[in-house]
């Protein structure tokens, strides 16, 4: 009887040992929000989704929000640079010849934008084992983008006017210097 109890206790422990230290549990497909897989589309707004799995719920939320906003930022403007390296070599004679081909490519995307009114409109928090998996949906109203462009244009105009004003003062100073030189 004692042996049976020991075996009964050992079996679940063995399963637990086999289970720990393994891979991270994956999100079940039916747990993933529909709006994450297929973000909504609209004429007057951009939608992008982000997700993150972390031990801390607050961190998971921050990371998912940041990734969703980053996707918005890259949708608005991104500078892409690509580099492709190709290396080919053949050595040996006739049928014994060996060919070697190596291709390497590097792609870099850089974005830097100020987002006015990029809101996280939907969030879902799932648990996967001991991890929190956060899903965030960011919305960027295109009216905000238009307003931002107008503001930027106004700023540029103000800078231009300021530069123009400085230029005329410079000219005035030059004229004064000329007059002073004549006076001497």
């Amino acid at each position: 009887m004692k042996k049976l109890i020991v075996i009964a206790l050992l079996i679940p422990m063995a399963f637990m040992l086999l289970d720990c230290g393994g891979k991270k549990p994956k999100a079940k497909m039916n747990d993933i929000p529909e709006w994450y897989l297929n973000p909504p589309m609209a004429e007057d707004a951009i939608y992008e989704a982000g997700d993150a799995a972390k031990q801390s719920m607050a961190l998971a939320k921050e990371a998912a929000d940041a990734r969703a906003r980053d996707a918005i930022s890259r949708t608005i403007e991104v500078k892409v640079s690509n580099m492709l390296k190709n290396f080919m070599q053949e050595s040996g004679l006739g049928n014994d010849a060996e060919a070697l081909e190596f291709t390497s490519s590097v792609s870099k995307q850089v974005s830097n934008n100020v987002l006015n009114g990029a809101r996280i409109v939907k969030r879902e928090m799932k648990t996967e084992g001991s991890m929190y998996h956060a899903y965030s949906l960011a919305e960027y109203n295109l009216n905000s983008l238009i307003q931002e462009t107008i503001n930027e244009a106004k700023k540029q105009k103000a800078l231009y006017n300021e530069a123009k004003a400085n230029l005329s003062f410079d000219e005035l100073e030059k004229e004064i210097q000329k007059l002073e030189a004549v006076g001497d």
């Binding site: 929000d65 906003r69 980053d70 918005i72 930022s73 890259r74 870099k108 995307q109 850089v110 974005s111 830097n112 934008n113 100020v114 987002l115 006015n116 009114g117 990029a118 809101r119 996280i120």
Partner: peptide, 10 residues
Amino acid sequence: KNLKITAQSV
């Protein structure tokens, strides 16, 4: 963050 944020990434 919903009001204004600077987002930079590489």
